[in-house]
């Protein structure tokens, strides 16, 4: 049982806040506390993500680490953390209409076709942005995030202000990200959770007709796949 479930992606830091942990641990579901303790006789029985979480919690209780400082370190290393496999998926979709149709119809298969495994038990849903509809993703309860394709979630994605305000007033929040959409564009906000992870397919920028997939992928930012920004524009030649 232990060690097989490394897909826990809740990068939470709110000790005692019930809104965060563990959708991915159904194998322990409805087991009583005493039974859990009896099963988990030694630390080696416990899966690694729970051990790391426990270490963080214990050291936080002792005042030896500050969870927000951990976030800062993670943020600093985000460039090497986030392989941003998603950018390759989006670039392929822009370049190949057949692939794009496949991605929208069966995202798990289309993403797997590029060699990127999803975490167990979750379904990807791809949302296509158009001139008429702009999609943006949040996890209102915690920080569910498709990290196999997007790397680690940014700190703001996990923040309470984003999680509440993007639902109440998406147009203003997007404007704060520099994404000012015309009034004629409808904005749809989607709630990612442990079973369904949304991936936004941003609109292909103007002036990219001659670019190959690698050059296109460089324009696909993490934020554009969350939906808070558009894809980047190519540098003028």
């Amino acid at each position: 049982m232990a060690g097989q479930h490394d897909d826990h992606d809740h990068d939470d830091h709110s000790h005692g806040d019930h809104s965060h942990e563990g959708h991915d641990h159904d194998h322990f579901h409805r087991i009583h506390s005493e039974e859990v303790d009896a099963l988990l006789m030694s630390i080696a029985d416990i899966e690694i993500s729970a051990r790391v979480k426990a270490l963080e919690e214990l050291l936080t209780q002792k005042g030896l680490v500050d969870p927000s400082a951990l976030d800062a370190v993670v943020d600093l290393y985000e460039n090497q953390i986030g392989p941003k496999n998603g950018a390759r998926v989006i670039a392929r979709a822009w370049a190949d209409p057949v692939y794009k149709a496949w991605l929208l119809a069966d995202p798990n298969a289309a993403i797997a076709d590029l060699g990127f495994a999803g975490a167990q038990g979750e379904n990807m849903v791809a949302l296509e942005n158009t001139a008429d509809v702009h999609n943006v993703v949040v996890c209102t309860l915690c920080s569910c995030y498709p990290w196999p394709v997007l790397g680690l979630p940014p700190v703001w994605y996990k923040s309470m202000p984003y999680r509440t305000r993007i639902v109440r007033d998406p147009r203003s929040v997007l404007a704060e990200f520099g994404t000012v959409l015309p009034d004629s564009t409808e904005i749809r906000v989607w709630d990612s959770n442990s079973e369904v992870r949304y991936l936004v397919v941003p609109r292909r920028p103007e002036g990219t007709e001659g670019l190959d997939e690698a050059a296109l992928a460089a324009l696909v930012s993490r934020d554009s796949m969350i939906g808070v920004t558009e894809a980047l524009s190519p540098e003028p030649a």
């Binding site: 826990h8 019930h18 809104s19 942990e21 563990g22 959708h23 991915d24 641990h25 322990f28 579901h29 409805r30 087991i31 506390s33 859990v36 303790d37 988990l40 630390i43 416990i46 899966e47 729970a50 051990r51 979480k53 426990a54 919690e57 996890c139 309860l141 915690c142 569910c144 959770n193 442990s194």
Partner: peptide
């Protein structure tokens, strides 16, 4: 670590 496992097992359902 056991507390983390228990917490995850008794979790809400989003």
């Amino acid at each position: 670590a056991r507390a983390v496992v228990r917490f995850r097992a008794s979790d809400h359902h989003h």
